[in-house]
Simulated assay, not measured.
Amino acid sequence: MTVEQVRVALSKQQAYALADAVMEEDALALTASAHEDEETGTWYFEASCEGEPDLEAFQELSRRVLGAAVEFEVESIDPSIDWVSRSLEGLAPVRAGGFFVYGSHEIDPPPYGLTPVMIDAAQAFGTGHHETTTGCLEAIDITLKRKRPRYLLDVGTGTGVLAIAIAKRLKSPVIASDIDPIAVETTRNNAATNGVSKLIVPLLATGLDHRTIAGNAPYDLIVANILAGPLSQLAPAIGRVAGRGATIVLSGILEHQAARVTNAYHLQGITLRRKLQRRDWTTLMLEKL
């Protein structure tokens, strides 16, 4: 597979806005992100595309989102290198909400009293380092301290980090779905590594469109760490499978998008109970009335 990278220097707010907009577009890019160059302090928007990128579509989107077209740079990415894994190798372990997420390179044993989750870098989102993942882990910890949900669903599971964390803490089955077959396989492998293969049910599904998800509803705890656009679109489906009193943890939401997502769920009889803020990212804790 030939992969091309689209890149442009923007303000921090612009880079995040464009990355979010690109990820809401079908098939425009494989991934999109905003990041800061640590040496120069310059913020960049970057997107990886399979094959030649549709620059006209990128420019049209930038006009709509930013109010002006921008000059994108395009360069080829060496397909023999797993840039996702390489960029994440050697990351320090993360403590979040009583969970300890670490890689296999970590020499020291997990600290006593924390729930250990071993996740190596992979071609799926979720090593525990991003503010959206740590926010979810903290929200899960808050939830499990006050109740013990039995029917559990992780939508857009990525590496399976959230599903595995819940399964290890509760010793209960968790359905873990994703639209990406690589993520499903990664979750299956990570579940085996963490000794919870029998508790994790990896599913390839678009949103909640799977008979196993429907057949095991209603759920007491639903987590979804995706993006604001897809989360808003999933509100009716999540509302249908959430049981009365269910906790719903949502992340992948920039601060300025939180009200839009909250309103989408309010229309489904789901109310906001708490917000966790981590830099520019918001994790919502909601309850089905």
Results as ranks from 00 to 15, higher is better:
Arg279Tyr: 03
Val117Arg: 01
Arg150Glu: 15
Ala69Cys: 11
Ile119Met: 08
Leu91Trp: 13
Leu199Thr: 07
Glu46Leu: 04
Gly195Thr: 08
Thr159Pro: 03
Leu227Gln: 11
Val184Trp: 04
Leu250Glu: 07
Asn194Phe: 09
Thr283Tyr: 00
Gln14Arg: 09
Lys12His: 15
Gly103Thr: 12
Ser172Gln: 14
Leu114Met: 14
Ala163Cys: 05
Gln13Asp: 15
Asn216His: 15
Ala69Met: 12
Ser104Phe: 14
Ser11Tyr: 01
Thr247Met: 07
Glu75Gly: 11
Glu39His: 03
Ile182Leu: 14
Gly126Glu: 01
Arg278His: 13
Thr206Arg: 14
Lys198Glu: 15
Gly207His: 00
Phe72Cys: 07
Gly51Leu: 06
Pro111Cys: 13
Ile213Tyr: 07
Ala47Phe: 07
Ser197Lys: 12
Asn194Ala: 12
Thr40Lys: 05
Arg260Gly: 01
Gly103Phe: 11
Ile213Met: 11
Ser251Ile: 07
Ile81Trp: 02
Glu185Phe: 01
Glu39Asn: 07
Ala259Lys: 13
Arg279Trp: 02
Ala242Gly: 09
Ala163Trp: 06
Leu289Trp: 02
Ala19Tyr: 03
Ala167Thr: 10
Tyr112Asn: 09
Arg146Tyr: 03
Glu4His: 15
Leu234Val: 06
Pro53Thr: 02
Leu276Arg: 12
Glu255Gln: 12
Pro110Gln: 11
Asn263Gln: 14
Gly239Thr: 10
Gln277Arg: 14
Pro173Ile: 10
Asn189Glu: 15
Ser232Ile: 03
His210Pro: 10
Asp141Cys: 11
Ala68Trp: 05
Leu286Thr: 03
Ile226Gln: 06
Glu138Phe: 00
Arg188His: 11
Ala17Pro: 03
Ala237Gln: 14
Glu36His: 00
Leu152Asp: 07
Ala176Thr: 06
Thr159Gly: 05
Ala9Ile: 10
Glu255Asn: 05
Ala121Thr: 03
Ile238Gln: 02
Glu75Met: 12
Gly245Phe: 09
Val174Tyr: 05
Ala228Arg: 04
Val201Gly: 00
Ala29Phe: 03
Gln5Glu: 15
Ala217Ile: 04
Arg146Trp: 02
Leu30Met: 12
Leu153Asn: 02
Leu221Phe: 06
Asn225Tyr: 05
Pro53Ser: 01
